[in-house]
Design a protein around this nucleic acid. Structure first.
Lengths: 206, 206
DNA sequence: GGAATTTGAGCAAGCGTTTGGTCTACAATG
DNA sequence: CATTGTAGACCAAACGCTTGCTCAAATTCC
């Protein structure tokens, strides 16, 4: 996760994700946090206004609709983490390393600084408009494609025994569930947790 | 799952769950289905009215509030499945059998005929009122207690190697996620799926 | 001074819920 | 046997409130 900030800055520079210091960015991060805490439907535009200090009417100067805010939260969180995943995999030719990287990056996506936005993407999918779904789906498919490719190679190499597509779904469930119970500063670190999920996937102690 | 219907009938007779033929029961099952499909907040009392053929106002003759419907859906689904779990475990002294039973019963709870209600319990927890949460929490703790007890014994016996509490949370995630992708009649049966989760838990092929 | 931004009042729609009353079935009463 | 009483189920209408969003005017910024 070392290059995390560097990657984020590069993406901001390229205009692929919003500068968190801009009004759009402030609204975005506040919304992500509220969506995570209260849920998308329970969060009102007035709530976002209150926490950002921007009046409700002004929110709609920066975003066309509440749905656009949700879509942007999801889109930018996957753009960022997809980039992080690709970079993290670049330097790792070893298959066991690659599998561990997948697990680790997703655990950080869900429980690190992007955790709110990533959780929103998983939990609030149903509340996204159809056109929003279409946009996000392409990015998600790219992300899932990377997982499946590594799992298929690992399967052929005998590192994992279960069918890759089933294994991915079972692991996805485990990982998606972690934000409901994992807390930083407890007895367990994200590294420890990565070990446990690795053990789940391969059947061997790390 | 053989005694499933028998257990349900006994619980109806004892008044611990609602008769599905009664107006209360019709509302309950319809609501569970709608809550699952559209989400609790997206489901209006008018929706429930439309699908049951009961006018919106009359729903409140059977339930004090929409929240009471949600709480009842959750409560009865866990009462039923807790009973099923206890019965299924009764005849199984073998530890490996017991672990497999836990997995199997929960997979059926999530993807069988009670799947809608059980999913609602997992997904809509946040939308339950505080007093509702308190009621359900006691039942959930009993249910989780059974899981942890079996996992602790399995850990001591060397059947599983991971810490029981962490293993339970990772498995819970995998199992909770199954309704989003598992479909009956596909290439995979619930028995097959039980095997895969068993493999995940123990690290050994079933 | 023109463009971008912010403001705050307010609208139309939808929400859970309440109300007052009707209908039906059946038991009790005279 | 006819009448009355009772209780549960249901209906139609509406109430009070919240919601996402709009808009014309005011303000700020370059």
């Amino acid at each position: 996760m070392e290059f995390s900030e560097e990657i984020r800055n590069k993406l901001i520079e390229d205009g692929r994700i919003t500068d968190p210091k801009s009004p759009r960015g402030v609204v975005l991060n506040t919304a992500a946090s509220l969506f995570r805490r209260k849920g998308y439907l329970q969060t009102t535009v007035r709530d976002i206004g209150r926490e950002t200090g921007i009046l409700p009417g002004s929110i709609f100067h920066h975003y066309r609709s509440k749905d656009e805010i949700l879509r942007t939260v999801m889109e930018e969180s996957i753009v960022l983490n997809l980039e992080r995943l690709k970079r993290a995999l670049e330097a790792r030719p070893d298959l066991e390393d690659r599998l561990r990287t997948l697990i680790s990056v997703e655990l950080y996506a869900m429980n690190g600084e992007t955790g709110e936005a990533w959780s929103v993407m998983v939990d609030e999918w149903r509340n996204l408009s159809d056109q929003g779904k279409a946009t996000i789906l392409r990015l998600r498919e790219e992300y899932e494609g990377i997982w499946l490719e590594v799992l298929r190679e690992a399967h052929q190499a005998g590192i994992v025994t279960m069918e890759p597509d089933i294994l991915r779904k079972l692991l996805a469930g485990s990982l998606h569930w972690t934000p409901t119970w994992f807390r930083h500063g407890g007895g367990l670190s994200l590294e420890d947790l990565t070990d446990r999920v690795w053990q789940l996937a391969t059947g061997h102690r790390p």
